[in-house]
Amino acid sequence: MINKVMDYKNRVLAIFKPKIFCISFQRTGTTSVGVFFKEHGYAVGSYGVSKKNDWTLSWFKGDYEKIFNSFDFKTNQVFEDDPWWCLSFYKVLFHRFPKAKFILLERDSDKWYDSMVNHSNGKILGNTYRHSKTYRRENEFYDANFNVDKLYSRDIDNLLLLTEDQREHYKNLYELRIREVKEFFNQFGSDRLFTSSLENPKKWNELGAFVGIKVAADYEVHANNTAARK
Score class of each variant (00 low, 15 high):
97 F>G: 12
196 S>D: 13
70 S>W: 09
21 F>T: 03
211 V>Y: 13
194 F>A: 02
199 E>T: 03
108 D>L: 11
158 N>G: 02
14 A>C: 09
99 K>H: 15
161 L>F: 08
37 F>Q: 05
161 L>W: 04
69 N>L: 06
6 M>R: 08
140 E>M: 08
4 K>D: 12
3 N>E: 14
177 R>Q: 14
53 N>I: 00
44 V>E: 01
187 Q>H: 03
211 V>H: 14
11 R>M: 00
129 Y>V: 02
58 S>T: 05
58 S>Q: 15
201 P>T: 04
112 W>N: 10
20 I>R: 02
211 V>L: 09
40 H>D: 01
155 D>T: 10
128 T>H: 13
181 V>Y: 03
65 E>I: 04
134 T>V: 03
122 G>H: 11
78 V>F: 01
205 N>E: 15
132 S>A: 14
46 S>P: 11
66 K>V: 11
112 W>S: 10
92 V>C: 10
60 F>C: 09
185 F>H: 13
10 N>D: 12
110 D>I: 14
31 T>N: 13
53 N>T: 04
176 L>C: 06
101 K>W: 03
41 G>A: 05
49 V>F: 08
25 F>V: 01
192 R>K: 15
186 N>E: 15
3 N>Y: 06
10 N>M: 08
97 F>R: 06
229 R>H: 09
31 T>M: 11
16 F>C: 15
191 D>R: 10
58 S>R: 12
121 N>H: 04
54 D>V: 04
196 S>P: 08
72 D>H: 00
147 N>A: 12
4 K>R: 13
109 S>T: 07
138 E>I: 13
10 N>H: 10
69 N>G: 07
56 T>M: 13
65 E>K: 04
188 F>L: 04
8 Y>H: 05
203 K>E: 14
130 R>N: 09
192 R>E: 07
132 S>N: 11
182 K>E: 12
143 D>T: 07
108 D>V: 06
198 L>C: 09
142 Y>K: 08
141 F>A: 06
28 T>E: 00
18 P>R: 00
211 V>E: 14
159 L>P: 11
72 D>P: 00
116 M>N: 06
115 S>E: 07
125 L>P: 15
206 E>C: 00
26 Q>N: 05
115 S>L: 06
198 L>E: 05
179 R>Y: 13
170 Y>K: 10
115 S>A: 14
37 F>I: 01
167 R>L: 00
31 T>C: 07
219 Y>V: 11
161 L>C: 02
111 K>Y: 02
77 Q>H: 01
160 L>Q: 12
26 Q>G: 12
182 K>L: 10
13 L>V: 01
86 C>V: 15
